[in-house]
Nucleic acid binder design. Structure first.
Lengths: 138, 138
DNA sequence: CTACTTTTCCCCACTCTCCCCCACTATGCC
DNA sequence: GGCATAGTGGGGGAGAGTGGGGAAAAGTAG
């Protein structure tokens, strides 16, 4: 899952997920809090994988991750491919009207455009970009 | 992939990829931002390699590379071998009408002619050329 | 338990972009 | 010169994206 899209949340609070991702995400998505104030969207399969890893952890470690699971939500898209994001999550990521939808390989990320902009600029700074590409072997 | 071509983006935003590269690129190309304001085009196979490396990285490192994947796109050529480049990417590389297509072994690079010119001149400067050839052991 | 409000979801109708297809031109090879 | 393949341009249809009406489900109060 790669690429960037912009969609707006409509009056009913629905967010459209581009068709190209829906095939990969399956018919149930899992939305949870992400890094730097965004939301992450995982496929059914990927989520099961994460849950399995979590369950294997000793309680002492798992306690730090309570918030991650407590703030996760299962979202089923309607026939047009739109999901309803719980108010709590929407608030966390400050999603109002416009939403930036980023494919970052393992998952989708949902961003408030104002928050995404500086993050994107930093990532596209020539120095950082060159370093990243070198590391990945581009 | 070597060589240089010039093609123009038509009224519908389509860019023709020379036939000689299409065989090597497969039937799905991956276009992403490149260094110095160009776009890079990778084959299916090469992209899978890059993604695998990215997925193996710890999240802390991967977060700095979000922009790289968010600004990538999967492009399927039509029957005539043309691809549609997302507006965001076209803008990044300032691609308007004329596009320079360079084969640089591992990938193709798409350039705005005005941007490519100084880069090419620098690379063809005798001093720099000699240094490059020496480094490669020509 | 019932009546009412609110939320969620399904469906329909509409617009617009993208992609498939076809027809034409240019180039190069036999 | 003629044929095959590369490259160029545009018409039209399928499906992606958008908005809203209304039924079903869930929650609230009397």
């Amino acid at each position: 899952m790669i690429g960037q899209h912009r969609h707006s949340i409509d009056a009913k609070g629905r967010l459209f997920i581009p068709a190209e991702y829906r095939a990969e995400l399956g018919n149930t998505f899992y939305v949870t809090i992400g890094l730097d104030g965004c939301l992450s969207v995982y496929s059914d399969a990927k989520w099961a994988e994460l849950t399995a890893k979590f369950d294997a952890l000793p309680v002492s470690k798992a306690r730090a991750m309570r918030a991650l699971f407590a703030n996760a939500a299962e979202c089923k898209p309607d026939k047009q491919g739109r999901i309803l994001i719980p108010a709590k999550l929407r608030q966390y990521a400050a999603l109002e009207k416009e939403v930036v939808i980023n494919g970052v390989s393992r998952c989708l990320e949902l961003w408030n455009p104002q928050r995404w902009e500086p993050v994107e600029e930093e990532g596209m700074d020539p120095e950082n970009l060159a370093a990243a590409m070198e590391e990945l072997g581009f």
